[in-house]
Design a protein around this nucleic acid. Sequence first.
DNA 1: ACAGGCTCCTGCAGGC
DNA 2: TGCCTGCAGGAGCCTG
Length: 282
Amino acid sequence: MPELPEVETIARGVNSRVRGDRIVEVWFGSHREPLKNSASRQARGLVERRIESVHRTGKHIVVELGSQGELRNSAGTGEIAAQWIVHLGMTGRLLVTTPDAPVAKHTHARLRLESGRELRFVDPRRFGRLEFRDLAKGTKFGGPGLEPLTIAGEDFAALFRGRKLAIKAALLNQTLMAGVGNIYADESLFRAGIRPRRRAGRLTREELERLRKSLKEVLEHAIRLGGSSVSDYVDADGAKGFFQFEHNVYQRTGEACRNCGTAIKKIVVAGRSTHYCANCQH
DNA sequence: ACAGGCTCCTGCAGGC
DNA sequence: TGCCTGCAGGAGCCTG
C-alpha cells in the first residue's frame, strides 16, 4: 500500500509520539504471522527496550532501540542496540493508540509502552513484514537501493545506463532505488513527460535529469500533504492524506489530462496498472 | 537481463 | 440479497 511519502508520514508521526518511551509488554497474534523471525523471538527481543527513534529507509520503517533492561524512566544511553523493522506491504498500518482503543481486525502485534500508549501493527492482507535485529548478533539494517530524495544526478543516470527494461519497471525496482511504488512512478513520469514503456537505457541525459527532479518534487509534495489515501491508508493517528486529490494520472483512466484534456490511458507495465497521457508524455 | 506469470492474503466494487 | 470476477500503494520466485 504505502510508498515513500506514506511511510515517511507514518514514521514521523510514530517517532513524535513514542520516541523516548519504553516497551513494557509485547503481544503477537497467534495465527500465521507476517514475520521474518518468530513471534517469540521478536517479543523477547523487543521488551524492556527504550525507543530511541523511528525513521524511514525506502519503504521500511526502522524503530531504533536501546539496550535491554535499562532502569525504568532512565534517559537511556542513546546508543542503538537493536532494531525493529516494519514493512507495511500493501495494507499494513502502524498505529499509536490508547490502550483501551478497540483492537482492529487483523491486528498482528501490540507493543504496550511505559506511557500507557500502544504501538499496533495491523495488516489485513499480511503482505507486510516484521523483523527484529539484535545488533550485537548481526548488522544494522541498511535497506536496498538509493534514496530518491537525495540521489545525485550522476548516480541517478548510472542506475539506468545500458538497461533494456521499461523505465517504469526500473523505478519500481527497489534494489536500484528504494521507496518508489506504483502511484509515484506514474506521477513522476507524467511530470517529466516520459512514457512508462520507454527503455530505461534509451533516455537522454536531459530526460533522466527531468525525471530525477520530477520524482523528487512529486515525493516532497506528497509528503507535505501527508501521502495518498487511495483506499485505506492512514497515518500513525489514523488520519488520511491529501495527495490523492493531486494525482494527475494515477487511477484517472479515461478522465481528461489536467494539462491538455486528452483522455488518460491505462496499460500494464511490469505487471502493474500504469496510467499516462499519450499527448503529454513521449 | 528481462518479461511475464503466479503466489502470498483480504476486502471491496461492479455485474448479473 | 447473494454469488462471481477482477482488482488493489508490494515483492519474491520461477520459467522461458
